[in-house]
Design a protein around this nucleic acid. Structure first.
Lengths: 198, 198, 198, 198
DNA sequence: TATGAATGAGTGTTCATTCAT
DNA sequence: GATGAATGAACACTCATTCAT
């Protein structure tokens, strides 16, 4: 029989890569880079551990690839806010809701793992420096400034306000992201009180 | 030198145990149970790794002992709030400051590790169930109720308010506890706005 | 295109086999049986690694086939000497030159690999016993005897002389066969002094 | 009971190192760096494989250490020749006998493995460059020169003579070093004929 | 025939734990 | 009590071999 053509092979490869990255994300996010065994990822993806190495040269590379993707995605998500409708406060509310919504939680957990684990590849540490909190603060600065000018947001140091708010959101995502219900995500309106004008 | 009597020996034993537990706390809190090698704890404690096994039968037991202690201590800390002076709001402010102050951060990080790591001993999981968020909520309920009655705190579902507030504090402790400055602890007054009457 | 007929197919098969064996020889000779990966042979032959298994059932079989061929060829080469022109000494000189000339070096290296590697198939070990040094000695005995009778070669134990001389040649081939210039092939005349009459 | 004192520990360590290096030499020399499994060395040394790593950080380090030792020892052995009694030819005879005597054969095989294997650590390749054949040629130059002046050795290019002679000896050591009797070590007098005056 | 995705046994290395001293 | 040598289970990764296409 004829061998598969390039297009078919390429499709198989792409699908496998996505399948593996999905599985790896779920495991890495929960267990961190050290706690994650390649065999766990293989089992989660439903393939043999050997096959992982056809697609990623090492555990480190797989982890790094995921982190890079997560950082870019989170950066992108931050920019989304400017496409939301409504006043600055409406937009911040929407951004908060989307962040706390479980959909992106695994990515946040992954980034938290990357930030706090010790045995992390150099490249990941570099990424962490590249995408620090400051990047997000800068991105959101115009939005929050406008909110202050309109009188929706509290006056004062805008950058502190943003950094504080994002830190709170991040912390909540981290502690609530894994399945456990030990913690509780507050209603968004309660969170917004931290920054709205009284 | 005369041989030590039983009491002295017992005291050495206790001191060693404390020394080891302190070292273990510092390492476990930062690196989690899997990321922590017994040799790291030994090095941190300044003893040989063999000696660890005279005081704790295994890494798991050491971890479990620490978690148990941490949970009891955090429970205790919660009760402290009733010994603080001032109005309920004053007390909540003081409680917040103490939690976010680094002193107890290691214990919180350790508990977070215990809560989120997967390879954790069963006994630890049991402890987690015993000391859920609800325990803290109950403990603080009288204080927050009083705050609401006095008009210092916002009205509404008290338990939600407490759970939300503690979750925010916990999240902040977790993301800021290790050395990294990627996140920022907000000023306590900003946090209190979440729960104070406007 | 019309399907190939049996004969053509058979020829393709033979050509492929030869192509693969040539590639395998080059790789095995340099790297030994353990150091050689099937993928290296495939790359050297310019085919996919899967295809190797259409022609040889295993790495061992491929290696064994090559060794067998090499032994037969070397046996054959030894017989060549009787077709060379000139006196016995002339012929021994010519034999020496041809052996030390790189052309057959890969075969010798391969045989050396087979002789010294441990993880070698049983069949190869059998071949080694079948084609021991004695075989060569016997083959060359008439030639060297004639040389002695003519007074070209030193008198004495002919078999020792041959075995010694071949061992020296073999040793030289082995240490100089791979690209490295760490060793030096002596001029043939210097080697011949070991056996010529003074 | 008191722990072992430093001296005892140091002695245990030294003995173990020697024991391991001996075992490793035997296995590496025969099977090369790729063909040698750490478990083989452990078995040969009669210890667990884990213990190897208390003494050598990796297979590469162990191999490199051995090669370095072997090169230094062979260098040293070459210098020995000047302490032998007798004429230059006597000394060369003695040197030849000692080289072909099995005692140092494993070291030579090891060096041959290092020279010809491909998966060899960089440091080993560096050592190979540092201790090339030239080094030995230089070392022996005065001796051979004296032999020529005295009329014991053939006239002509001294360096070629030495390089040729050492190459022949090396080749013989390599092909005869492993247990097999397929090759035969010639009587030293036969070898000497290559370089002596007729 | 030909390809390369897929599998799993095997190897290097780490580290919790044991134990002689 | 205290030390560190010693063991072996566990894990990252490689590669011979199989097989669907």
């Amino acid at each position: 029989m004829a061998p598969l053509n390039d297009e078919q092979l390429s499709q198989i490869r792409d699908e496998r890569r996505i399948q593996i990255m999905g599985a790896a994300l779920r495991v890495f996010a929960r267990r961190g880079i050290i706690g994650t065994k390649m065999s766990m990822i293989a089992a989660e993806a439903g393939i043999s551990h050997g096959l992982l190495y056809h697609y990623f040269t090492s555990k480190e590379e797989l982890f790094t690839t995921l982190v890079q993707g997560a950082m870019e995605a989170s950066q992108e998500a931050m920019k989304e806010v400017y496409r939301f409708p409504g006043t600055p406060l409406d937009r911040i509310r929407r951004l908060s809701e989307e962040m706390l919504d479980k959909s992106g939680a695994l990515y946040f957990l992954l980034i938290h793992q990357a930030r706090t684990s010790e045995g992390v590849p150099d490249k990941v540490n570099q990424l962490m420096r590249d995408y620090s909190l400051d990047t997000y603060v800068e991105e959101l600065l115009p939005l929050f400034r406008e909110g202050q000018e309109r009188g929706e947001l509290d006056a004062g140091d805008t950058e502190e306000m943003i950094a504080s708010y994002i830190s709170v959101l991040s912390g909540l995502m981290v502690v609530t992201a894994d399945g456990n219900d030990d913690y509780r995500i507050p209603p968004v309106d309660r969170l917004l009180r931290m920054i709205t004008k009284r």
